[in-house]
């Protein structure tokens, strides 16, 4: 039985909950063998493979709900604060580098401070530093230095979620 190139790496990365990005060689292999990998993950682990032009990842019925929620809160707060600061938040998230100092400024002076303090992963500078490392492990950000990072194209997974909230609410209103 023959497997595509980088098969082991693909399985290890996706099973570790990582987002696979278009600039990775493994992404291209998954893209070229989308049907096979969809079947492979379904038959082997009952996981669903999702492939978009921005990322590939697998999802199971059992979800890391808490982490997903905290990532949403993190990106939502950052977007809100950037916009409030007069920045093009979408452009900044897509194309710019962030320094932890900037993140700290936004979070410590945020009007959502109660929400931040009540969240274990975002409550203070140390917690946020650990959280950034978690995002790095999942390939949602890429660390460019000790205190610097850029968002990867996987951030669109969460941005799409924000768009869906509005669509869902509009549909409910219309319904």
């Amino acid at each position: 039985m023959e497997f595509p190139n980088h098969h082991r790496q693909i399985v290890e990365d996706l099973m570790a909950g990582k987002f696979m990005l278009p600039n990775e060689r493994t992404y291209q292999t998954v893209k070229d063998n989308e049907q096979s990998y969809t079947y492979f993950f379904k038959a082997s682990f009952n996981y669903e493979l999702r492939l978009t032009q921005d990322y590939a990842y697998v999802v199971s019925e059992e979800s890391a709900e808490m982490l997903s929620r905290d990532i949403c809160i993190f990106i939502a707060l950052l977007s809100y604060e950037l916009d409030r600061d007069g920045k093009n938040f979408l452009e900044r998230i897509q194309f710019s580098e962030f320094e932890m100092e900037e993140i700290e400024n936004y979070f410590t002076n945020s009007s959502y401070i109660d929400l931040i303090l009540s969240n274990k992963q975002l409550k203070d500078a140390d917690a946020r530093k650990n959280f950034i490392n978690t995002l790095n492990r999942r390939n949602i950000i890429e660390k460019t230095g000790d205190n610097r990072f850029v968002f990867t194209s996987a951030h669109k997974f969460f941005v799409d979620f924000a768009t869906d909230i509005v669509k869902y609410e509009n549909t409910e209103k219309e319904g």
Binding site: G17, E62, I71, C72, A76, S79, L90, R138, A162, I165
Partner: peptide, 23 residues
Amino acid sequence: ILTGWITYLKNPYKRKAPKLLKR
């Protein structure tokens, strides 16, 4: 997007988050 995020931030603990693989 911002409308979505602001709606989400109103009560993130009651709303379902997108599914992420549990390691």
